[in-house]
Simulated assay, not measured.
Amino acid sequence: MNEPSGEDKAPPALSVVIVAYNSGATLGRCVAALAAQTFGDFELLIIDNASPQQEAVPAAAGLPGTRVLEAGGNLGFAAGVNLGAREARGRWLVLLNPDAYPDPDWLAELAAASGRHPKVKSFTSRQVMAQDRGVLDGLGDVMSAPAIPYRGGYQTPDPGDTPEGEVFSPCGAAMMVDRDLFLRLGGLDESFFCYCEDVDFGYRLQLVDEPTLLVPSAVIAHEGSASSGGPRSEFAVFHGTRNRFWVLVKNTPALLLPLVLPLHLLAFAVVSLRPQNRPLLGITWRGFTAALAGLGPVWTSRRRTQAQRRAPALQIARAMTWNPKDLSGRRAVIRPLRPSRRGAP
């Protein structure tokens, strides 16, 4: 009997989406790590953002059945993920960066976590540095009081005994979310193009009272910014500066806005004027002025986002960290899973 193909096959449990652009040095290794997964009930979709390196098709050969979707241009990470989400067939949408290399049991651990916590619809991974697995790349994303997000534990030693628990936001480099929920919330905000779109989505999850659970046993090794020139590149600094401000304006509840906005502006000034950051001051200022220039559409988006909010402002405040030492030390902030998300659905 012939094997069913395409739409005739039963939907997989998971759909893994990778957005490829200038990922020729890493994408093949990433796909090879997926091919070695102990959990096999998944499909892989690679979004080719018209990469000049044309790496998507050769890399896809490393995992039979992989679908390559031609974006027709460089849509950015956010729009690329949304394209993959629309075409995906699994109940769970799994995002993976092309410079991230999952351990063989990565998908199995994420799937097991969803079974242990059937009320939770968003999960994130333990990320270690590909260059040194003893150093963290992140334990989920943290939102500080000045609305400056960061990856928890970034560039600090991996303690190895991290508890499973809630974090503010999943990191888009290696996360799993209920696909229906993702689409219902509008997916990633395509105006962000790249950087902070995962934090924006995680903030919107918080606003609709959907927690994100860190699964420390689900591990990926991440190179980070491999296709965008590094975290201090002009591209990264501009988009990071602009998009952080947009996350604040779009998502912060009105009750918190008078407190968070001045803190953000103060922190922005302090960080920008540090000696190591002064060479980037021109790019940083360009990103900030671009943020201000784009506030009209962001404010329109804010009205839609706040209209969906179910969580009270105090709950959002509690999900943030108000300890300045957390931000300065990039400390992970992991809290016990809220009681309403424990047990059977």
Rank of each mutant, 00 (worst) to 15 (best):
A112H: 12
H222V: 07
D105Q: 14
L14D: 06
L248T: 01
M320D: 08
D48Y: 02
W285A: 15
A88R: 03
R278K: 09
L107V: 08
G287Q: 02
R232H: 06
L93K: 05
S125Q: 08
S233W: 04
R335F: 01
E166W: 02
A33C: 15
Y21D: 02
R89G: 09
E210R: 03
N2L: 14
L34K: 06
N82A: 04
T321L: 06
A88N: 05
Y195T: 11
L295V: 11
L248Y: 10
R303E: 15
G296T: 14
T252L: 10
T289S: 14
P231C: 01
P324D: 14
R304C: 13
A236Y: 15
W106G: 01
A10R: 15
S272M: 06
C194K: 09
E3S: 12
R330M: 14
L205P: 11
S217R: 11
K119F: 10
Y154R: 04
D180G: 11
L266T: 06
L75R: 00
S225G: 10
Y101K: 06
L292N: 10
R338H: 13
T124N: 00
G240P: 05
P312Y: 03
R330I: 14
G172F: 03
N82K: 07
A226H: 06
F245V: 00
A112F: 12
A174E: 01
L136D: 02
R242D: 12
A267Y: 13
P275M: 03
A236W: 15
H264A: 09
E87V: 09
S114Y: 00
G134V: 08
A344E: 15
G28D: 08
T241S: 15
R274M: 05
G294V: 07
K121A: 08
T300L: 15
E190G: 05
G140E: 07
R242P: 10
Q315L: 00
F235D: 02
I220H: 04
R341T: 03
L266P: 00
E70Q: 14
A269P: 02
A317P: 04
T289A: 11
P258S: 06
T305E: 03
L256G: 06
Q127R: 12
F201Y: 09
G229K: 13
Y195E: 11
M320R: 00
R29H: 11
R318M: 14
S15M: 03
E7C: 00
R232M: 12
L266E: 11
A61W: 14
F168Y: 08
R232Y: 08
G153K: 02
D48K: 07
L14W: 00
C171E: 05
G152I: 07
P336D: 05
I316T: 03
V128R: 00
H117G: 01
G140D: 02
